[in-house]
Amino acid sequence: MFLKLETRETGSDVGLSTLACFLLGVVITTLSAALIIAVIVSDKAAPELASLAMQNLNTSGVENPVTAVLLNFRSYDTLLEIAVLLIVAVAVLPDQCFAGKTSLPAKRFLSRNVKHQVNPVLAGLLKWLVPLALLVGGYLLWIGAYAPGGAFQAGAVIAGAGVALSLAGQHDFTWQTTSVRITLSLGLLVFIVVAAINNLITGTTLQYPVSYAGLFILIIEVAATISIAAILLLLFVCLKAIAEPAREGDTQ
């Protein structure tokens, strides 16, 4: 398995011989069928976790049950999920981000690249689209407490605004400064600090005092939104920066 691992375009789509493909198809079909039969045979009504979640919703600090699960009942998973994002962010960060004081004069996070000509229609569209995306992101963050929405959705939309700017080509993002690293880790840091503070208040890690639960959840969500947006944007911009030289080489 995985014996063939291409990173460049080749003629063939498939890394196995026809016979191997056929056998693999037979094996996977059989296994899937067995799995489906197992699900159908033991299809019984499960005990209700849903009603338990609904009963505790009024002490969770939010009205949206999914947000209550993500940031109160099972907030530990969400904390670790932000750590997972941070792992990939650190892995992908360009080398010069770590160079410290000796590097080039620190540039701003977002800078304008005047040399790049932008289609006026595109420029006009961006002028509307980027603020709108930021606004929608803020709205999604706020509405998460009451209806579908929340930190990840908001972060994704805000990162989308950055992606649009980056694709248009008139703006550059720089990831060198310490403040960028703070932004990337802010979500995790605030989450841990809130967990520690609540440990002092209630005596249990990640247990919020009922009357302040909504406030603590909002603090975590704002910080998480910032970090998630920054990390998603970082992933896109860094991968684009690596991919671009190869493409330019092809089109010259």
């Binding site: 976790l49 099972r74 530990y76 890690t205 990640l206 247990q207």
Partner: peptide, 10 residues
């Protein structure tokens, strides 16, 4: 964690 206890909490 969180004082909820299984199955709701972790």
């Amino acid at each position: 964690l969180g004082g909820w206890g299984a199955p709701l909490g972790i």
